[in-house]
Write a protein that binds this DNA or RNA. Structure first.
Lengths: 220, 220
DNA sequence: AACTATTTATGATTTAAATCATCTTTTAAA
DNA sequence: TTTAAAAGATGATTTAAATCATAAATAGTT
């Protein structure tokens, strides 16, 4: 692993953090944490894939972020009541490094460049979250979600187009903020236009440039 | 003013920051900064009111945040390309304190508790931004926006219900992420139910508890 | 006060997406 | 290897919100 901590804390602090960290292993479908629980530390994904979800009022959930190797999760509840405002669910069997809050706080206070890096990390998360405010038609939202899946998961080994991990249609819909049937129809449409290629459950992104332009708001 | 800087930097650093800061005065409707511009520093609102907007693809803009006295603005573009990802527009004549990026960075590196406080500030902004992901019906979104206006602007002096500042209907619609006509109709509906009271342009929040419950996803 | 311009309001119609209803395909289990 | 369960796909219908059209009300200007 080569996380923000390794990069910005001194060797001594890295040892100290590692000594107090522990490995957490979760199975596909398991919660890593759930909305409302008290925050006891920070998780860094060592190997695996995770979805971060939030509740829309009463009923439906929405995926607000995907995370993979090296990504930090569980930082959103920092400050305030120190409770998770979102849930994290493993998309496959996942290993995480858990750093107790006390240790993390000590490291931030002692390593000013780490504190600065964490601040910038949060700023980037904030910018990323602005995507959620864009209320474009379904087609654009779906393109945006597919592109994000590519950014986070990349392409499969030996392929120039196939997503290395495919969310279920239900999860893709949840991330796009639309209903399942609507997502399926939109995928079919993009497939017909050869922007993507549907291969059973799997999805190929055949025209990344077109996808980018659609996600930026290209009409029709 | 009593901002995060005063509270978390040493006296010496406060003097240093103040020495290098300058006052910026903008008139109602003026841009404080615009999407795409290079970031040269951080603004703190000394006295006034500001809306932060983002572009939805080609056409419409959406208000993603309101800010008033003591609030920090312009931090969203930190990191990455160091360009503003949003625009800030004064809702009334506004005085701001501008801190050059170089000075701010020095202060963050030198004052670890300030760096920590900034990190927590960003975390709170991030949590706040999750509101944008909730895709509730118009009625709930409008309630959410009215409540946020109350949180940021408060009630007028001598009134227990009247918002101290009233956004235009167009701006309220932009914040709720709905069309103008839809917003007006929804306000009329909430008015009929006596949750709010419309007094010309001005809005009274008569039943804050009901408003809270609607914004949390109460149906019908 | 009279005249614009802007902001607020409301009715009628259209439309994109949700919902409802099936059906097929794939995966998992007995 | 048959059966059950889950995931994926598509057509038909409904609906909430957008759009179109127009009218009041308010504010600003000469």
């Amino acid at each position: 692993m080569n996380s923000i901590i390794q990069n910005y804390c001194s060797d001594g602090w890295n040892e100290y953090i590692e000594f107090h960290s522990k490995i957490v292993q979760v199975k596909k479908g398991d919660f890593i944490f759930e909305t409302g629980q008290a925050i006891e530390g920070l998780h860094i994904i060592h190997a695996g894939k995770v979805k971060i979800t939030t509740k829309n009022g009463n009923d439906t959930e929405r995926i607000i972020r995907l995370a993979a190797d090296g990504d930090i999760i569980g930082h959103r509840g920092f400050g305030g009541s120190w409770k998770y405002s979102v849930s994290a669910i493993a998309l496959e069997n996942t290993d995480l490094i858990f750093i107790p809050l006390k240790i993390f706080n000590e490291a931030v206070i002692a390593n000013s460049s780490f504190a600065y890096a964490m601040m910038i990390f949060f700023a980037e998360e904030l910018r990323e979250s602005e995507r959620l405010a864009s209320q474009l038609p379904v087609r654009n939202m779906v393109a945006s979600v597919l592109y994000n899946n590519y950014e986070v998961f990349g392409f499969a080994k030996g392929s120039e187009t196939k997503l290395s991990f495919t969310l279920s249609r239900t999860d893709l819909a949840s991330q796009a903020g639309v209903r399942y049937e609507t997502l399926v129809r939109t995928l079919a449409e993009l497939n017909t236009e050869k922007v993507i290629k549907i291969e059973g459950k799997f999805i190929h992104l055949c025209d990344i440039e077109k996808l980018k332009s659609i996600k930026e708001g290209e009409l029709n």
